[in-house]
Design a protein around this nucleic acid. Sequence first.
DNA 1: CGCAATTGAGTTGTGCGCAACCTATGTGTG
DNA 2: CACACATAGGTTGCGCACAACTCAATTGCG
Lengths: 144, 144
Amino acid sequence: MEESTGLEQMICFELYAASRAMTGLYRPALDALGITYPQYAALRVIWHRGRITVRDLGAALRLDSGTLSPLLKRLEHQGLIRRERGTHDERVVWISPTDAGTDLEHRVADLPERLACALDLSAEEFQTLQHLLGRIRGAATRTI
Amino acid sequence: MEESTGLEQMICFELYAASRAMTGLYRPALDALGITYPQYAALRVIWHRGRITVRDLGAALRLDSGTLSPLLKRLEHQGLIRRERGTHDERVVWISPTDAGTDLEHRVADLPERLACALDLSAEEFQTLQHLLGRIRGAATRTI
DNA sequence: CGCAATTGAGTTGTGCGCAACCTATGTGTG
DNA sequence: CACACATAGGTTGCGCACAACTCAATTGCG
């Protein structure tokens, strides 16, 4: 029996700790590929869309340009993505995976499933969690 | 209908986004008090225990000394906590709230309830979420 | 006792997250 | 057309997280 810390009843803390625990679960696999967890999340969206603006990527990840600009610069330096100024509207920057980036996609194809297994949740629990997290995110972002 | 991003099915991403949304929900209230969310989490434990070593605080928050040392130094500079070298074992540092720190506790007493309300979850959903997050954290930390 | 191994805290370096601000480009209105 | 305004992306600064490391104090074992 652990000593009480007064945090047990705080959903916010559970969320914060669970989120960090989860990225820790991804870390060994991602370290081997030379990318971080937020970089991986960004790549998932880029792979899925094929070609996306920094703005839309930020909307998908809920991250602003202050976070994304340096992150994308690092992915570009690693040769995983390409950045091109839009020709029609020169304010926008289009992101797309390079060949090396697409290659990486195939090497991590089984990662989500492997790690979902590690969590040992039933399909039903999984769905419940997803629903509740969505509602939290909705409520929290709406209030702002 | 939003465009698909390929992240919908990834519980890890929902967790990551929900956690950030939640700290964003706390931000206005904590900004007014001049503390950050991790500082607030640390203070909750310190208030609850009255007196705690850096080691035990780290175990409660799942944070290492690399994160806690500078965080505690900032709380000390703000006059909210005291740091004292242990007399019996001079390696350990004991953390305790100052009068100003205890005062702050009273001013945030209603914060968890206020923010729990903003989430608009039923008591049952709340409990389900707590249980599932606990299992995730357990599974993720056990695997390491 | 003497010395290797362990432990507790701190430091350094890297990469987020986010606020605040900047610049360039585009849009809308009179 | 001119000028205010909005928008896209970038920069700076600060505070986490976490790995890797240092150092001092303590413990354990022959």
